[in-house]
Design a protein around this nucleic acid. Structure first.
Lengths: 146, 146
DNA sequence: TAAATATTGCGACCGACCTTCAATTCGCTC
DNA sequence: GAGCGAATTGAAGGTCGGTCGCAATATTTA
């Protein structure tokens, strides 16, 4: 079951964070664009449409808080900007297919890596707590052209 | 068999790049620090010791060229700076174990992902040409403390 | 050796992100 | 609901990795 907007606000409040309009607006933007991997500037662009007074620094600060509370999850696609998605998605071990040509990002699920993690622990004494798997290549649309 | 310094210079020359002292010095630095994942600034620091006149921009430009020629391979560990390693290492499908606590980076090899790539191609029509797998966790030394 | 062209170092610039600070707002208590 | 203290905000400026423009210089080819 996925968290509701209200349950996430409650999570903020539990940790003594104040429920400001700005934080609500930013959080709502993630519900409205659930499918995308949004960067800070993209979020800023979205919330500014209806709330032009919200500053970029506030967006950065809010994203940092939401990531620390495990509400959002940071991802990097190598284009120099950090992107965010709902953290709950991460427990399904979904990973990313990144098109080198058009930059489109798709997802796929797998559970293959869990067995790999325990194998690593045995072999190397390294305690794995998270992993990131990215595949680079050409999506269906970009395989003919280019 | 790994390429020699001279064979890599030849590769540059084939593509109509000039063999300048700066490029040789930067390339040599990678032979002298083969085990590490060096960033542009680190390379600059190394080459400046014996050749203080080499500019940072030249280092960036040279690394870009060497990466485009598949002599070096770019890697990102999420610390905001691009790092480089010899590309030949990549064909062995080695991946990285990144310690969240001390930042140490270890490597491990696997061939597991090749079968996954063909599986993806069938399932999603996505043509995989490269992949990146990173595990975050705690290395042996950091598991007790922290 | 000289001309044509690529490359260099420098400094200015860029974009993503963070910090500082005065002004405002939240959440609590009365 | 007013008042208080602490957290938060927007704006401006700063940091940092990386890039660009340009005049000076070096490499290659003839």
């Amino acid at each position: 079951m996925r968290p509701t907007f209200n349950s996430l606000c409650a999570k903020l409040q539990q940790k003594a964070y104040k429920i400001t309009p700005q934080r609500q607006i930013i959080l709502k933007a993630f519900f409205d664009h659930e499918q995308r991997h949004l960067s800070a500037e993209e979020i800023h662009g979205i919330v500014k449409q209806n709330h032009p007074e919200i500053g970029l620094a506030t967006v950065y600060r809010t994203l940092e808080i939401l990531a620390n509370l495990d509400i959002l999850h940071k991802i990097e696609f190598g284009d120099g900007r950090t992107r965010y998605e709902f953290a709950e998605a991460e427990v399904h071990h979904h990973h990313h297919l990144i098109c080198i040509n058009c930059g489109k990002v798709m997802e796929f699920n797998d559970d293959l890596l869990e067995s790999l993690e325990t194998w690593i622990a045995k072999k190397t004494n390294f305690l794995v707590v998270d992993h990131q798997l990215k595949f680079y290549g050409y999506c269906k649309d970009c395989q003919c052209r280019e």
